[in-house]
């Protein structure tokens, strides 16, 4: 079936089965490889994209449900000033180890900071705990979110 998607501000028509998850349309039909496959069940967050700004697990979102929603992926997130700041903070603080989860982390962090420009540590926990990092770079993810927000990067959850 034919679906017309709005991906990173561009109309894209694809011909796929309606049950195909958005993730696989992005990766294997539109050749946008930035969104990653990790679990296929919405458990790890590596596939996170924005639908109308809302962080969404693309691995469990059938293409038939996307409709005209604005799809933003890691490739396009830099178009927003918040997304650009988050990306820059990730590089400046050298967040990645293997880097595989970081597209999803950046998408989740950008959605958080767009809705809540000055998050507390608790807010960060709430927004980010659905995104797994198997290298456990959480220390730096937390600091980078604060840096992108212009907040002091020190961890204030001292024992």
């Amino acid at each position: 079936m034919s679906y017309t998607l709005n991906v990173n501000g561009k109309a894209q028509t694809v011909d796929v089965d309606g049950s195909t998850p958005l993730l696989w349309v992005l990766r294997d039909v539109l050749d946008l490889k930035g969104s990653k496959f990790g679990c296929g069940m919405g458990l790890c967050g590596a596939c996170t994209v924005h639908l109308n700004g809302m962080p969404t697990r693309s691995c469990i979102t059938p293409i038939s449900l996307v409709g005209a929603a604005a799809v933003t992926t890691i490739e396009g997130v830099g178009a927003s000033p918040v997304g650009e700041k988050v990306r820059a903070a990730w590089v400046e603080l050298d967040v990645p180890q293997c880097g595989y989860c970081q597209a999803g982390q950046i998408m989740a962090a950008t959605a958080l900071l767009t809705a809540n420009p000055r998050p507390t540590d608790g807010d960060i926990d709430d927004a980010m705990s659905g995104n797994l990092c198997r290298c456990y770079t959480y220390t730096r993810i937390r600091a980078a979110i604060k840096q992108a927000a212009g907040l002091p990067t020190a961890d204030t959850r001292e024992a």
């Binding site: 490889k33 930035g34 830099g78 990730w90 990645p96 880097g99 970081q102």
Partner: peptide, 22 residues
Amino acid sequence: PLSGVDNPLIVTGQPLFGIDMS
């Protein structure tokens, strides 16, 4: 302390990993 050489590719979602090969 230097930032990883692939970081600019990672944060922009460029094809880089094994799974991205086509």
